[in-house]
């Protein structure tokens, strides 16, 4: 069942060609805007990838809700539906991250290149469930898109050294970026990894619980007598 949902989600995504073009263009625009400063370019690229994947996830979950609810009514497991959608979105996001990793490798001189792969990958692994969680908690597209915009705008504007920034989902990208371009810059890779693990786990759990609660039909008793 999960593989069938993954397959149809990937097909749906591939057929949203204009949306895919924008998903690719958004991180590129962020990257090009800061290309003269390696660290800033990489950090904004990661935020762009995260924003694009979260938005794709939000719209995918909102647009598939009626169909998924219908599937759940006739017997599909809500967990399998949520997992299938998430796996497809994560695979798409990792593909996007891979392409941008290649771009960074070709255009930037980075001390620890593998850390760029790590920060792009972790951005995707946070963004996919983040978009899904927003779509499940804020059920309409416009409100969800505005909620994501608020989160991402805060992420870009907040002082990364401030306490408040650590409560934002993609704070870990700053730690990874600093380590990638300047290993002696005082970045704490372990702290970044711990932050990523906590945020990704929280977003995934919220997605799963909200998804199952939203999709699962009430269990009705079978008629007992003729």
């Amino acid at each position: 069942m999960v593989s069938a949902v993954v397959a149809v989600t990937l097909r749906e995504l591939l057929r949203r060609r204009r949306a895919l073009v924008l998903v690719v263009a958004l991180p590129l625009a962020f990257y090009l805007a800061r290309i003269d400063t390696t660290g800033q370019a990489i950090r904004f690229l990661a935020l762009g990838v995260g924003w694009a994947v979260a938005t794709l996830s939000l719209f995918t979950h909102v647009s598939s809700r009626d169909l998924d609810q219908r599937l759940a009514i006739v017997g599909a497991s809500p967990s399998a539906l949520v997992a299938g959608r998430q796996l497809a979105l994560t695979a798409t996001g990792l593909g996007l991250a891979g392409a941008y990793f290649a771009l960074v490798a070709l255009t930037q001189d980075v001390t620890h290149l593998w850390t760029v792969a790590l920060l792009l990958g972790t951005s995707v692994l946070i963004a996919a469930p983040l978009g899904a969680a927003v779509s499940l908690l804020v059920p309409r597209e416009l409100e969800g898109a505005l909620a994501l915009l608020s989160i991402m705008a805060l992420q870009m504007l907040a002082d990364p050294d401030g306490t408040g920034a650590k409560f934002l989902p993609l704070w870990s990208t700053r730690e990874f970026t600093t380590y990638a371009v300047d290993p002696s810059g005082g970045a704490d890779l372990t702290q970044g990894l711990l932050h990523f693990a906590a945020v990704a786990a929280l977003a995934a759990v919220i997605t799963w619980i909200a998804g199952v609660l939203r999709l699962r039909p009430r269990r009705l008793p079978v008629p007992s007598t003729r």
Partner: peptide, 12 residues
């Protein structure tokens, strides 16, 4: 079950 609306995906 056939709902009044939203029972199919336009992309499939």
């Amino acid at each position: 079950y056939a709902p009044q609306q939203g029972g199919v995906s336009g992309f499939l």
